[in-house]
């Protein structure tokens, strides 16, 4: 079984920050890990294949483009959970979806290009699943800065 080594960990920690915009960004970043450009690219490919990274690339803030994010929750009965998951996940507007231990057992993030898109996505989910959706858009952001040390 493949295991992360110290270089992989350094890459994961070092690249949560920012890849520069320039002709050979991986070559520049590789210097800080004391490996070659090609090795950095190969290691990133492997970390994605191994699902240690879920994504590598730009993180967009849809609100800056006039769009909206919202967090929404549902109370889904256990024998219906799989069907509802499929229906909810099928919407491209659903960016993340988590199962949580609570009466509200499905929590998803909607990202849409317009604020009206949130309302539309929610009513579509309600119609297609038959469950009410509880919309909890953020009213204020106190902090966002998820960093995970490898």
């Amino acid at each position: 079984m493949w295991q992360m080594d110290e270089t992989d960990k350094a890459i994961i920690n070092g690249l949560q920050g920012g890849l520069p915009v320039c002709e050979r960004p991986y070559q520049i970043m590789a210097l800080q890990f004391a490996i070659s450009e090609n090795e950095l690219i190969a290691r990133l490919e492997n970390l994605l294949t191994q699902k240690v990274l879920t994504r590598f690339g730009p993180m967009f803030q849809i609100e800056r483009m006039g769009g909206a994010f919202s967090l929404a929750a549902m109370q889904v009965s256990e024998d219906d959970y799989e069907r509802v998951t499929e229906t909810v996940n099928a919407l491209t507007e659903v960016a993340h979806n988590y199962r949580r231990e609570h009466q509200f057992n499905m929590w998803f993030v909607l990202a849409t290009e317009t604020p009206a898109g949130i309302v539309q996505a929610i009513s579509r989910i309600e119609v297609e699943t038959g469950y009410p959706v509880f919309n909890m858009p953020k009213e204020k952001e106190f902090f966002v800065g998820a960093r995970f040390a490898a």
Partner: peptide
């Protein structure tokens, strides 16, 4: 700010 950053998104469970 349309792009927050360009980088890696780790799967925190894997870590």
């Amino acid at each position: 700010g349309v792009i927050r950053r360009i980088g890696a998104v780790p799967n925190h469970y894997s870590l």
